[in-house]
Design a protein around this nucleic acid. Structure first.
Lengths: 198, 198
DNA sequence: ACGCTGTCTATACGCGCGTATAAATCAGGG
DNA sequence: CCCTGATTTATACGCGCGTATAGACAGCGT
């Protein structure tokens, strides 16, 4: 295994421990059993290395989101919806530190064209993926044209991201699946006057 | 006006321009027409100053969110719901850079007890506020006990935050109010089998 | 007029950072 | 077996950072 791979691995580990902004080139070298100059050689700069590592992390978060979204879309009865929302919270435990680093990098992206393009592309990808799942799983049950499916996807992703943020800040007080479902129902009733189940 | 206020103002301006992580003590001094040592004198450290400024920004975001949530909760007919969601997107334009800095600080908070406590407290506050608005505005229309109102509040905040994130990344492709409402309906139908309006 | 207290200023210190450079090492084809 | 190009090493450089310190200065009660 070359230094390139070692450095990527170390970057991922450090992103879990210290967060994007506080990783130094020397940290990376120490954690990867490589050499200070390897960073420049393989990635051009420290930022290049970190961005590459962040890209991998985004992909994993994306995978998890897609899986959850699929289950959410499929879950017709109330009981299953509850289980689905819970799955998001469960999965977060392993990813806490990585998510934080991801948020940090996300904020940086606005001033870093390369990173920003990378994020935008990956986001488009996940939304398309979720939208596809939604359209497929709702097929026949409800008419879901493509723009509508995309809106659903955006919405689902927004909820997941927003809840993840809340959980990062205060895991204990983050609502459970039951509570969320209840909230969703309340909101929908309020905004339409519909009474579900009638 | 003392240096303390000048520094706070400069911090806010710089948070808009450069982002949390890239502000140096000398930047702050240059932007505030003060002295390098004033930072230590009034705030203990650069971080102390920045955290104070971030607290102000959080409060403003919180105010905006509360206002939007109120309108969302109140909006019974479909047309008004649409208008409400749109309000969130409109309001974001002025706040783009501040939001980014906020996200950056948010990520830092996990490794900074003081900052974290500050955020958590402010978050509790906004959730209680939104929950109160929800309970009040839905009163009589639907039974909204306190835990349920809190769940609604969490949910509404999650949606706002998640959408804000998407908008930060890619303003053009963020769904409109119409699209969001449509998505919400679709999701609700799928997870309950209810057909709104029947 | 004096000294105390809160504020402001000028400056120095030393550390740790990211990166560049040049030499050493290695792998494999001719 | 050496030449070549890719990789790995060791090290040096200079910059900019956050903070500490010590002194200047103003307001003001006495």
């Amino acid at each position: 295994m070359g230094h390139r791979e070692q450095l990527l691995g170390a970057a991922r580990r450090l992103l879990e421990d210290k967060g994007y902004a506080h990783i130094t080139a020397r940290d990376l070298v120490a954690a990867s059993d490589t050499n200070l100059a390897s960073i420049g050689y393989h990635f051009g700069s420290k930022a290049g290395l970190l961005n590459a590592a962040i890209g991998e992390i985004f992909d994993e978060w994306t995978d998890q989101l897609a899986e959850i979204a699929m289950r959410a879309a499929v879950a017709t009865p109330v009981e299953r919806a509850h289980v689905t929302w819970s799955a998001l919270l469960d999965g977060l435990d392993n990813k806490r530190a990585l998510l934080l680093s991801f948020m940090e990098a996300f904020a940086q992206a606005d001033r870093n064209d390369e990173l920003r393009a990378q994020f935008a592309a990956q986001y488009q990808q996940i939304r398309g993926r979720v939208a596809g799942l939604v359209a497929e799983s709702l097929h026949g049950q409800v008419t879901a044209d493509e723009p509508r499916a995309k809106a659903v996807a955006s919405f689902v992703i927004a909820v997941c991201d927003g809840l993840a943020m809340q959980w990062l800040l205060d895991p204990v007080n983050t609502p459970t699946g039951d509570e969320l479902l209840s909230g969703l129902g309340l909101l929908w009733q309020a905004s339409t006057g519909a009474r579900p189940g009638e």
